[in-house]
Design a protein around this nucleic acid. Structure first.
Length: 704
DNA sequence: TCGTTCACGCACGTC
DNA sequence: GACGTACGTGAACGAA
């Protein structure tokens, strides 16, 4: 009960708002800025946290003639809602919002305003003095523009903000060092903190040589408002500062694009720059406690403090390290593809009797289904589907189809990988991808510019690209991946006896499944049976439908349904688990991983059947995929700090969901291999063993 | 009118 | 199920 009760001192709330909100009157000419601001704050707290009830106390004392009537007015409004503990309901929020409208002279609800004093200085003495400020925390924001560091906004109390432009003695490195030192004695908060690690290193990580224990949640070191907002709701498309300002503080901050457009920030007015950076620091300072409280309420403190925050530092380090790509060999690979692409292009034009743009699904559709009269399977919104699986079925009908498929495959390799990757090779001959921590709905990391998490693997020709990814001179790659981590998590979470037992046997899991499902001895499982069982195992993890499975295996929906029924007979715990997880997700409105990471699933309550079905698949998949992501993140942190503890030269450089790549010094190969396998396997203890395979190679092709 | 920019759909690479 | 990128297309926009 007490956990969910918000206790408010009414006098303080209104008094605080009275001084922070500019004076204004309601339509009757009575000053109401304090009431307005107070209710505004109350609503924002109630909305961003999970209080079940509200209790507001008042005292006679208020010490200010102008303040008193506003406190009384507020008391009147609150007492109309009930006495003592008032339940927090939708109705309560609505009536509070209506009260706001009544208070506003125009009837329009306005956002709160920045209660901020901004000082701009680059005077060395002043800056030195500023960094001596006594406080238990600070919020800052590095204003950067395509690599240029322009200035720093920083606040120690959430109302006085200083903007320090980079000039003269005040360099980016100087400010970074100041922050590093500051981090030794106070908690630091920023927005998208990974971007500031270029200049500053929090002492928590700089001095750390070991991972994080489950039991000590390291609550108060670094804090990233962006990551916090993401954990609370991972479904949003973006988390710009203005967005957080609006959601948590009801403040309006212009979007960066609106303020500066595409002009380089260096050209912008110092006043605009300083205001923008300072407001973000202000937002961080004031949103931090709200977000911390919400993370505590929702049980995501460990995720935030022990996992995501240290991870952001590690991702920065991996990005900075990068991976060497052999420019010339990549070029040669592309040229080789081009020869064959040209041949195919000619053959396709020849067969079609006309030159057209093969890359255009529209034109291709017209050629195949109208000019050549192949049997069409109209699928997409805008015309014929020419997707690979459709074309494969058409292949026997006309020789052009096979050529088109090959052409598609080769041009994909050429444009996305050969040419695409080449554009990202930096002067140090390395590709420095961006690992994004706040994109995915499930908790996975994503990689962009370029995406190094989808380098070809399936076909031999595609896989050859991996030969151009190499470690530095004399070094090798150590590549470690979890074996079927998601299926193992399913076994653990579903507590299915058969599946758990199967993993303890330590034999080929797909073969065991086939043997059980098709009732044949382990040794007599055919390769087709194994393939089918594997597809079902795979599909189950995705919460696949019978239709989806039928597509995967190119069998009828009826057959697919039979497979799934047989599967559920074999592993009844899995079926039970899936039903339970759908029900609980629906009841709670969100799914949860083993570590408490949440994903809202509003689709489960949709009236549209297909959307609801989608919601069910999400509910089945998100806890599995998300738990795998959590485990890998823990492993990365343990591996990273272990490398540091042992003062190894080897560096973690890539993560591909269930796989880690370390650029390994030749004399450290044995240590690193052992370390990787050990740390990854012990990142979590499940009811099934965790298995990690590690390979060494002199390029990524060989190491995989 | 022409060229550029943008959002969108499609196709396909990975785990 | 979860992503990111390349490409073609058509609409919107601005300059000429």
């Amino acid at each position: 009960m007490s956990e969910n009760l918000l206790i408010v001192n009414g006098n303080e709330l209104i008094s605080d708002a009275f001084y922070k909100t500019p004076a204004f009157t309601n339509s009757e000419g009575v000053f109401v800025n304090g009431v307005y601001g107070g209710i505004f704050k109350l609503i924002s707290i109630l909305k961003t946290s999970e209080y079940k009830a509200l209790s507001i106390s008042f005292s006679e004392e208020c010490g200010n003639e102008r303040l008193k009537p506003q406190i009384l007015k507020f008391k009147e409004i609150i007492e109309a809602k009930g006495q003592g503990e008032i339940p927090v309901t939708k109705e309560l929020l609505e009536s509070l919002e209506n009260a706001l409208k009544d208070l506003s002279p125009s009837g329009e609800v306005k956002g709160a305003s920045f209660d901020m004093t901004l000082k701009v200085t680059s005077d060395l003495n002043e800056v030195e003095a500023l960094f001596e400020t006594k406080s238990d925390r600070a919020a800052f924001y590095f204003l950067t523009d395509i690599g240029d560091f322009l200035g720093l906004g920083i606040s120690f109390d959430g109302s006085n903000v200083t903007y320090i432009p980079v000039e003269n003695f005040i360099t980016a490195d100087y400010l970074g060092k100041k922050l590093s030192i500051l981090s030794e004695r106070m908690s630091l908060c920023s927005f998208d903190i990974k971007e500031s690690y270029k200049y500053f290193e929090p002492s928590e990580f700089a001095n750390r040589t070991y991972g994080y224990k489950d039991e000590d949640v390291s609550g108060n070191k670094c804090f990233d408002v962006l990551i916090g907002a993401y954990l609370i709701n991972p479904l949003k498309n973006d988390y710009e500062p203005w967005d957080v300002a609006k959601e948590y503080l009801k403040l309006t901050l212009p979007k960066r694009a609106d303020l500066f457009g595409k002009e380089p920030l260096a050209n912008a007015d110092i006043k605009v720059l300083s205001e923008y950076a300072s407001k973000i620091a202000y937002i961080c300072f004031n949103a931090e406690p709200l977000i911390r409280a919400k993370l505590a309420k929702t049980g995501m403190e460990r995720l935030m403090y022990n996992i995501e925050m240290p991870l952001s530092y590690i991702l920065y380090s991996m990005e900075k390290e990068g991976i060497i790509v052999k420019r010339d060999e990549l070029k040669a690979y592309g040229d080789k593809l081009l020869v064959r692409i040209d041949e195919l292009e000619k053959a396709i034009y020849e067969a079609a009797g006309i030159e057209f743009n093969i890359n255009s699904p529209k034109q291709l559709g017209e050629i195949l289904f109208e000019k050549l009269g192949l049997p069409a399977e109209k699928k997409t919104k805008s015309g014929y589907s020419t997707a690979a699986d459709v074309l494969e079925k058409l292949a026997p009908e006309h020789k052009i189809v096979a050529d088109i498929l090959e052409y598609r495959g080769l041009t994909k390799l050429k444009s996305t990988y050969a040419d695409g990757l080449a554009a990202y090779i930096a002067d140090d001959n390395r590709i420095h991808t961006s690992f994004n921590q706040t994109i995915t709905a499930t908790g996975r990391i994503s990689s962009t510019e370029p995406n190094l998490q989808n380098i070809p693997m399936r076909t031999e020709l595609g896989r050859l690209i991996r030969k151009v990814f190499v470690p530095k001179d004399g070094y090798v790659f150590a590549d470690a991946d979890y074996s079927q981590i998601e299926l193992r998590i399913l076994a653990h979470m579903s507590e299915d006896k058969g599946l758990i037992e199967a993993y303890h046997e330590g034999k080929d899991i797909h073969r065991i499944t086939a043997s059980k499902v098709f009732h044949v001895p382990f040794e007599e499982v055919t390769s087709l049976q194994r393939r089918n069982a594997k597809a079902v195992n795979f599909g189950i993890v995705y919460g696949i439908s019978a239709f989806g499975l039928s597509q995967d295996l190119s069998i009828s929906a009826h057959e697919a349904k039979e497979y799934m029924e047989k599967y559920f007979e074999t592993y009844p715990g899995v079926k039970k688990y899936q039903e339970d997880v759908i029900a609980s997700t629906k009841a709670k409105g969100y799914s949860e991983t083993m570590f408490g990471r949440r994903r809202p699933v509003p689709e489960l309550k949709a009236s549209n059947f297909n959307l609801r079905q989608f919601g069910e698949r999400v509910a089945m998949n998100a806890p599995i995929q998300g738990t795998a992501a959590d485990i890998m993140k823990i492993a990365m942190i343990d591996v990273f700090f272990k490398l540091k503890e042992l003062s190894l030269k080897s560096k973690l450089i890539l993560q591909i969901h269930d796989e880690l790549v370390i650029e390994t010094a030749p004399d450290e190969v044995d240590t690193v291999t052992k370390l990787l396998v050990e740390e990854m396997e012990k990142a979590v203890t499940l009811s099934v063993p965790m298995e990690v395979d590690c390979h060494i190679g002199s390029d990524w092709y060989e190491a995989k």
